[in-house]
Amino acid sequence: MIQEPALPPGWEMKYTSEGVRYFVDHNTRTTTFKDPRPGFESGTKQGSPGAYDR
């Protein structure tokens, strides 16, 4: 089984109701579709995929 590298501290991976993966940075309280791990580009969309909830 291939294991992906861990997200940076304070980051979480979530999915929209449509199943699109996005990332929550709890450090800055922002969201992005761009994977924060080096070498992982998950898309070019920018903006908030939804309300920030902790």
Results as ranks from 00 to 15, higher is better:
residue 1 M to H: 15
residue 1 M to T: 08
residue 1 M to V: 08
residue 2 I to S: 08
residue 2 I to H: 06
residue 2 I to W: 04
residue 2 I to R: 08
residue 2 I to F: 08
residue 3 Q to E: 15
residue 3 Q to C: 15
residue 3 Q to F: 15
residue 3 Q to D: 15
residue 4 E to C: 13
residue 4 E to L: 06
residue 4 E to Y: 13
residue 4 E to G: 09
residue 5 P to E: 15
residue 5 P to F: 15
residue 6 A to W: 09
residue 6 A to M: 09
residue 6 A to P: 07
residue 6 A to L: 13
residue 6 A to I: 12
residue 6 A to V: 13
residue 7 L to F: 13
residue 7 L to S: 01
residue 8 P to W: 01
residue 8 P to Q: 04
residue 8 P to R: 04
residue 9 P to V: 14
residue 9 P to E: 14
residue 9 P to H: 14
residue 9 P to C: 05
residue 9 P to A: 13
residue 9 P to T: 13
residue 10 G to H: 04
residue 10 G to D: 08
residue 10 G to I: 00
residue 10 G to K: 11
residue 11 W to Y: 05
residue 11 W to I: 06
residue 11 W to G: 01
residue 11 W to K: 01
residue 12 E to H: 02
residue 12 E to L: 03
residue 12 E to R: 02
residue 12 E to W: 00
residue 12 E to Y: 03
residue 12 E to M: 08
residue 13 M to P: 04
residue 13 M to R: 09
residue 13 M to K: 03
residue 13 M to N: 04
residue 13 M to D: 08
residue 13 M to S: 10
residue 13 M to F: 09
residue 14 K to N: 04
residue 14 K to L: 14
residue 14 K to Q: 12
residue 14 K to Y: 07
residue 14 K to E: 05
residue 15 Y to S: 08
residue 15 Y to L: 11
residue 16 T to G: 03
residue 16 T to R: 01
residue 16 T to S: 08
residue 16 T to W: 00
residue 17 S to E: 14
residue 17 S to F: 05
residue 17 S to C: 13
residue 17 S to D: 15
residue 17 S to M: 10
residue 18 E to C: 07
residue 18 E to N: 06
residue 18 E to W: 01
residue 18 E to S: 06
residue 18 E to T: 09
residue 18 E to M: 03
residue 18 E to P: 02
residue 18 E to L: 06
residue 19 G to M: 07
residue 19 G to C: 06
residue 19 G to V: 00
residue 19 G to N: 04
residue 19 G to A: 06
residue 19 G to F: 02
residue 19 G to D: 04
residue 20 V to Y: 04
residue 20 V to A: 08
residue 20 V to L: 09
residue 20 V to T: 12
residue 21 R to P: 11
residue 21 R to I: 11
residue 21 R to C: 04
residue 21 R to T: 12
residue 21 R to K: 09
residue 22 Y to F: 05
residue 22 Y to M: 03
residue 22 Y to Q: 01
residue 23 F to N: 00
residue 23 F to L: 00
residue 23 F to T: 00
residue 23 F to W: 07
residue 23 F to Q: 00
residue 23 F to C: 00
residue 23 F to S: 00
residue 24 V to P: 00
residue 24 V to E: 07
residue 24 V to W: 03
residue 25 D to E: 03
residue 25 D to R: 00
residue 25 D to T: 00
residue 25 D to Q: 02
residue 25 D to H: 02
residue 25 D to G: 00
residue 25 D to K: 00
residue 26 H to Y: 03
residue 26 H to G: 03
residue 26 H to D: 02
residue 26 H to K: 05
residue 26 H to E: 03
residue 26 H to T: 04
residue 26 H to S: 05
residue 27 N to P: 01
residue 27 N to L: 05
residue 27 N to S: 06
residue 27 N to F: 07
residue 27 N to A: 05
residue 27 N to G: 06
residue 27 N to C: 06
residue 28 T to N: 05
residue 28 T to I: 03
residue 28 T to A: 09
residue 29 R to H: 12
residue 29 R to W: 04
residue 29 R to A: 07
residue 30 T to Y: 04
residue 30 T to M: 09
residue 30 T to S: 11
residue 30 T to P: 00
residue 30 T to E: 05
residue 31 T to P: 00
residue 31 T to E: 05
residue 31 T to R: 02
residue 32 T to S: 08
residue 32 T to V: 02
residue 32 T to Q: 04
residue 32 T to F: 02
residue 32 T to R: 01
residue 32 T to Y: 01
residue 32 T to C: 01
residue 33 F to M: 07
residue 33 F to Y: 12
residue 33 F to A: 03
residue 33 F to Q: 03
residue 33 F to L: 04
residue 33 F to T: 07
residue 34 K to Y: 15
residue 34 K to W: 12
residue 34 K to H: 09
residue 34 K to V: 15
residue 34 K to T: 09
residue 34 K to P: 00
residue 35 D to R: 06
residue 35 D to W: 05
residue 35 D to N: 04
residue 35 D to Y: 05
residue 36 P to G: 00
residue 36 P to V: 01
residue 36 P to K: 00
residue 36 P to F: 00
residue 37 R to V: 04
residue 37 R to F: 02
residue 37 R to C: 06
residue 37 R to L: 06
residue 37 R to D: 04
residue 37 R to T: 09
residue 37 R to Y: 03
residue 38 P to M: 12
residue 38 P to V: 14
residue 38 P to H: 10
residue 38 P to K: 11
residue 38 P to C: 09
residue 38 P to Q: 03
residue 38 P to T: 05
residue 38 P to Y: 07
residue 39 G to M: 09
residue 39 G to H: 11
residue 39 G to R: 14
residue 39 G to Y: 09
residue 39 G to F: 12
residue 39 G to T: 15
residue 39 G to V: 10
residue 40 F to R: 11
residue 40 F to I: 09
residue 41 E to D: 14
residue 41 E to N: 08
residue 41 E to P: 07
residue 42 S to T: 14
residue 42 S to M: 10
residue 42 S to A: 13
residue 42 S to I: 11
residue 43 G to W: 07
residue 43 G to Q: 13
residue 43 G to T: 12
residue 43 G to F: 08
residue 44 T to R: 08
residue 44 T to M: 09
residue 44 T to N: 05
residue 44 T to D: 11
residue 45 K to F: 05
residue 45 K to V: 07
residue 45 K to Y: 10
residue 45 K to I: 07
residue 46 Q to P: 06
residue 46 Q to D: 13
residue 46 Q to F: 07
residue 46 Q to K: 12
residue 46 Q to N: 15
residue 47 G to D: 15
residue 47 G to Q: 12
residue 48 S to C: 12
residue 48 S to N: 11
residue 48 S to E: 14
residue 49 P to D: 14
residue 49 P to L: 10
residue 49 P to H: 14
residue 49 P to E: 14
residue 49 P to M: 12
residue 49 P to S: 11
residue 50 G to Q: 07
residue 50 G to M: 11
residue 50 G to T: 13
residue 50 G to R: 11
residue 51 A to D: 13
residue 51 A to H: 04
residue 51 A to Q: 14
residue 51 A to M: 14
residue 51 A to T: 13
residue 51 A to P: 08
residue 52 Y to N: 05
residue 52 Y to K: 10
residue 52 Y to A: 12
residue 52 Y to H: 14
residue 52 Y to R: 13
residue 52 Y to P: 13
residue 52 Y to G: 14
residue 53 D to K: 14
residue 53 D to Q: 11
residue 53 D to N: 08
residue 53 D to E: 14
residue 54 R to W: 12
residue 54 R to S: 06
residue 54 R to P: 13
